[in-house]
Design a protein around this nucleic acid. Structure first.
Length: 778
DNA sequence: TTAGGATTTG
């Protein structure tokens, strides 16, 4: 029978397809392939009315969507059916049915350019010996002969590039932007969500509901949502989604490898293996195509003048005035800047007084305004909040002294708002564990409290003023050793022979370089050479050069790594191969995985380092995978590029890494990786020249510091704007711009003198050592 | 109905 309707039982056809038929891939529907005994399967996404051609032949056209590669740019194909077969099909076909077609004739499609579908179409007719099997999803059979059909309901999901005005659809999307639910000016809560999917089309949805719980539980950009029955409308020339009757949603964590557990308030929902597969596909697509922000900032990482999201616990709350409300929160870390305390009467502060006092040095005050007040009032003390787009406002109160204020301004621009996170949220679990581990005695003296001290919690103490005063009298640096030495004045040191060690008390009159990023160099501890940190342009050029050679397929998929390869769709048709190193024959979690990449660009490598633990750019030769030129990093981990010394390294092929992969718990430490690869690693170091004065004389001392002096790793400074800011603040504290010598703070340092001789001259130089910035300065 | 992404100016 040319057209057969098949009954579906438990998701499978009751009658199997004839065994001689084999499935044909969408991409193999090309001229030149033999399609005898092959079938193609797809879902009917469009069916046209039955028509008659000029010669009186019946004609029926449907569009089938390839479900194996649902998110390819081209994933649908025109099916043209003629004669009696057209008439039969037209009677029973419904959108969403699965069509299996065999015995078709393949031809170039004259409409491919205009309809964006497959460049071939399939022609079927009884005369040509074609067969069509239809798995119908319609509950109401279209023809009497199918009256016995029973099928599970099946949802059809529309890609975002295929949305039509006035329709109600089901869809999946990755959250690109969202406003957490807020109180609208009408009767409902409102949440605005912008989605994107692998068609690369965006859709902004405006969702209303009187019940906060009925809106999608989105916690961060990158979450994945499934919307059912969302209405599509055109607004300002673009498609827009809006809640319609029966709207429901599921939200999933967008992290690759995270459990696929839907967040929803619905008691009943469908979610099956197929849907799980879609979520996993979307996660994978997002991981390599979208830049999903990394972990949110902690209070210790707040950057002045910027906006940030904070996951925190509510410790106290208080009404301030009609348009603002105070939330006192903590996340277990200490903000490195002086922060303001909003003056509030103790009796107005809701929260556990003892807890508020104990945490007083770790809590920050966040003042929320206008539309956020109503929501803020409703939060329970102790609950976990995510506050989106807090403004870290830098306010100068006195000369050279500033503090940070945290405001959640009115309005909902940029997703500004507050959401309560459930205790089941992984970020909350992590935060709770961290808060429990915080040793309060570590950050403050945990003395017993008097009522007087309790009151002082709410006084507007300006800690930073006290800090400044301390800096005027005490030293802003401290010694880490040799406390028994007494001070020597600079004049005596200048008149002495080298080498010797001294303890000094001096002021920093000036320092070089003034542009702090210029102070970072690379140092080889073996040959003692110093070199500049290569710039990214050079990295990119070398990557481009290495991308010319195609990956060697013989080196793919070995016992210790799995490989994937693809070709870019741009004109260059660049081939990229990624080799994921396995452990115990298994792939590890992305955050534990080391991968090697061939043919990638700087941008692609950068994206991969956000997801994966280590990325090593490589190239293939006839026999081996090898490192690139040592002008580029031999390893990129987190934000840091690790370089090797060109003089002291003897690079080995990448297979040397397999010895680390085989270890019990490979930690992928850069030094260990360097060692097995024959690389002498270069270390990032700060090199600065301090001009020190003490009233008896002036001398230049070099600072050579990996981390100890500034308590900032030199390896991280170039990629971390917070650390740059912190270092600048430290230097401003050591040497405040525009101050008279009298007003400069004292530094206590150890210096050592040493001789530098060449043929022409002899010089005594000085180097600072065993000295660090005082804890309360940084 | 409400909002329709695109930082307050406290």
């Amino acid at each position: 029978m040319p057209v057969q309707l098949l009954k579906i039982v438990k998701g499978k056809p009751e009658t199997p397809l004839p065994s001689h038929l084999q499935k044909e891939d969408f991409k193999h529907l090309q001229e030149g392939f033999d399609h005898t005994n092959k079938y193609f399967e797809g879902i009917v996404v469009v069916s046209y009315p039955l028509t008659k051609l000029g010669d009186g032949t019946d004609f029926f056209k449907v569009v089938l969507q390839d479900m194996d590669d649902f998110y390819s740019r081209i994933n649908s194909i025109n099916i043209l059916i003629y004669g009696k077969m057209a008439e039969d099909c037209a009677k029973v076909t419904r959108s969403g049915d699965t069509f299996v077609v065999a015995g078709f004739k393949l031809e170039k499609s004259p409409t491919a350019r205009e309809d964006g579908r497959h460049d071939c179409h399939l022609k079927l007719s009884e005369e040509a010996g074609s067969t069509i099997f239809i798995y119908t999803t319609s509950k109401k059979p279209a023809a009497s002969k199918t009256a016995s059909l029973s099928v599970a309901p099946k949802y059809l999901y529309t890609p975002l590039n295929d949305l039509k005005d006035g329709t109600v659809v089901n869809l999946y999307g990755i959250v690109k932007f969202f406003k957490p639910p807020y109180v609208s000016k009408g009767t409902d809560y409102c949440s605005v969500v912008t989605l994107v999917d692998p068609s690369n089309v965006k859709l902004t949805c405006t969702l209303f509901n009187g019940n906060l719980d009925a809106l999608p539980k989105i916690y961060k950009v990158g979450d994945i949502v499934r919307f059912h029955r969302i209405k599509i409308r055109e607004y300002n020339g673009q498609m827009q989604g809006i809640t319609s009757g029966g709207f429901s949603s599921l939200t999933f964590d967008g992290t690759v490898g995270a459990p696929v557990v839907p967040r929803t308030s619905s008691k009943v929902y469908t979610f099956m293996d197929e849907e799980q597969k879609v979520i996993e596909e979307l996660r994978a697509w997002a991981a390599s195509n979208l830049s999903i922000p990394g972990p949110a900032a902690k209070l210790s990482g707040v950057q002045p003048m910027l906006f940030f999201d904070l996951t925190c616990q509510l410790v106290g709350k208080a009404k301030v005035d009609g348009s603002s409300f105070l939330l006192k929160v903590w996340d277990g870390t200490k903000c490195p800047y002086p922060t303001w305390k909003v003056p509030v009467e103790a009796r107005d502060m809701e929260g556990d007084k003892v807890h508020l006092y104990q945490l007083r040095k770790l809590t920050v005050d966040i003042l929320v305004y206008d539309n956020h007040v109503q929501l803020a009032k409703s939060f329970q003390i102790g609950s976990f909040l995510r506050i989106y787009s807090i403004h870290a406002k830098q306010v100068s109160a006195h000369q050279d002294v500033s503090h940070l204020e945290f405001h959640l301004h009115g309005g909902t621009c940029y997703g500004r708002g507050i959401g309560v996170l459930p205790e089941s949220n992984p970020d909350v679990k992590e935060l709770k564990a961290f808060l429990e581990s915080v040793d309060l005695a570590d950050t403050q003296n945990n003395e017993s409290m008097s009522s007087l001290e309790l009151d002082s919690t709410f006084n507007n103490l300006t800690d930073h003023e006290l800090d400044l005063e301390r800096c005027q009298q005490l030293s802003v640096t401290v010694l880490t050793d040799h406390q028994d030495l007494s001070n020597t004045d600079l004049k005596t040191i200048l008149n002495s022979t080298a080498p010797q060690q001294y303890r000094i008390r001096a002021k920093l009159r000036t320092y070089k370089p003034q542009k702090l990023y210029q102070s970072v160099k690379l140092h080889c501890s073996k040959c003692n050479s110093l070199s500049e940190v290569p710039d990214g342009d050079n990295f990119d050029l070398i990557l481009q050069g290495s991308a010319i050679t195609a990956p060697n397929l013989e080196l793919h998929n070995t016992s210790w790594y799995d490989s994937v390869m693809w070709t870019t769709q741009d004109q260059k048709q660049r081939k990229i191969a990624i080799h994921f190193v396995k452990h115990d024959e298994m792939l590890q979690q992305p955050e534990d995985t080391l991968l090697m990449i061939e043919g990638g660009t700087l941008k692609e490598i950068w994206k991969l380092t956000k997801r994966f633990k280590c990325v090593i750019p490589v190239r293939s030769t006839d026999n081996n995978l090898e490192l690139l030129d040592l002008s580029v990093p031999f390893l990129v981990q987190g934000g840091t590029k690790y370089y090797g010394c060109k003089q002291c390294s003897s690079p080995k092929p990448m297979k040397s890494l397999s010895s680390i992969a085989a270890k019990q718990e490979p930690s992928w430490e850069p030094t260990e990786i360097a060692q097995v690869l024959g690389i002498e690693p270069l270390q990032y170091v700060f090199i600065m020249k301090f001009t020190l004065v003490d009233g008896t004389g002036a001398l230049n001392a070099y600072l050579f510091d990996y981390e100890k002096f500034f308590q900032i790793p030199a390896s991280e400074i170039l990629t971390n704007s917070f650390l740059q800011e912190k270092m600048q603040m430290t230097m401003n504290m050591l040497c405040p711009p525009g101050r008279k010598l009298d007003d400069l703070p004292w530094l206590e340092c150890f210096i050592r003198s040493y001789n530098v001789r060449n043929e022409m001259k002899h010089q005594v130089c000085y180097q600072i050592f065993d000295t660090t910035i005082a804890e309360d300065v940084v």
